[in-house]
Design a binder for these strands. Structure first.
Lengths: 205, 205
DNA sequence: GAAGACACCCAAGAATATTCGGGTTGCGGC
DNA sequence: GCCGCAACCCGAATATTCTTGGGTGTCTTC
């Protein structure tokens, strides 16, 4: 028999952490090395402890889970399972691209988490049926924004006026309006006030 | 010894439901009568089963949990515990006003859920330390909007232009601008583009 | 090395939003 | 009554934003 796999659970909800912990309690091949409620200390934890499997919530209060993933993935033989509640479209794709080995929804039956761990450790990429369905809905052609459009979108999200944006980017106000018109066109909205909302739906922020 | 208390768990995350279920498995005085992942069938369930304690998540995918609460509270001797993750300020106050007997955050240690049930059944109102803290942050003086301001705020949230709003309300455009200026003042934001965001933070929508 | 395609920029006029000064109504207290 | 106050409304002048039409440079493709 091989050594147990050491799991780190990262989720801001204590009840979820304890649920997952109990889930693995009955399984010989896994041991829970620790649990964390924030993303900040994940890097340090995996450095100091022999963790080879991380179950990571994307929706953390301090850091965006995706950043935690980017930080730890690739270090040693770390296998990362994404466990997520409400999901921003695009984030899942991005997580898989970054190197996450499995994606499970919190709405999935708990045994899917174990299945995901087994599959990921066996070298497979695992996406639960529930997540696969959710992903399918967002398979609309991706909206590609230029760097200028992206910059202005961010300023819009901050609530800056066109005048302010023009000042910050050192361009003329009409140019800002022009880029905003492009954003409206690409995001297919009729009104400036809907741009940020739509961009968030598409996971562009 | 008295009869066990029958618990209904309502949460869209399977892993959370199973965590709570296991939490009560070791306690003689409670029995889990059932679990639901949607709010829609809660009414029917409590009618057909002898449930006297409901653990309710406010953030459900189909119905707002607060509406579920409004529906079931008051029927028989139903005791409702609110268990919530991210919370809209005001919603908790409202839940307590509607008759919820306890409020616990998902970030609280699981034993707080049991403590909440015990306290609620004993006739107390229980608010976990974590939630109390979160509530405190939102104890800012409530923002009172006039009916006109509220109407215009809703149109703004829809993304309507001032012109469109003026047309719908059959008033002049400058009047719309006037009300928007009032909203900016009351919500204490410098920019129109932040009004809706701020209003959502304050739970005005 | 043209010929598109694209991102980027601007000026001027059109459209839209805001400010300002001023008016009406309704309501509670002196 | 009459005053103060708040919410509501408007017109005109002002400020901001948008559209239009036109310009540049840089790629890629033929």
């Amino acid at each position: 028999m091989t050594a147990k796999h050491n799991i780190l659970i990262v989720d801001d909800h204590a009840i979820t952490r304890s649920g997952i912990k109990l889930l693995f309690a009955g399984l010989d091949r896994y041991a829970v090395a620790g649990t964390l409620d924030r993303g900040a200390m994940v890097g340090a934890f995996v450095q100091s402890q022999p963790v080879d499997l991380v179950i990571l919530d994307l929706n953390l209060p301090d850091v965006r889970g995706i950043n935690v993933l980017a930080e730890i993935v690739g270090s040693r033989d770390m296998t990362v399972i994404i466990l997520t509640g409400e999901t921003v479209p695009g984030e899942i794709d991005y997580a898989l691209k970054l190197g996450a080995r499995a994606v499970v929804s919190k709405a999935d039956p708990p045994d899917q988490i174990v299945a995901a761990c087994d599959a990921a450790l066996a070298g497979d990429i695992f996406v639960s049926p529930h997540m696969r369905e959710a992903l399918g809905k967002f398979q609309q052609p991706p909206v590609a924004l230029s760097s200028r459009q992206m910059a202005i979108l961010h300023y819009l999200a901050e609530g800056e006026s066109n005048k302010e944006i023009a000042y910050r980017l050192a361009i003329a106000q009409p140019t800002v309006s022009f880029h905003i018109a492009e954003l409206r066109r690409k995001l297919d909205v009729a009104n400036n006030r809907k741009i940020v909302e739509r961009a968030q739906e598409l996971g562009l922020l």
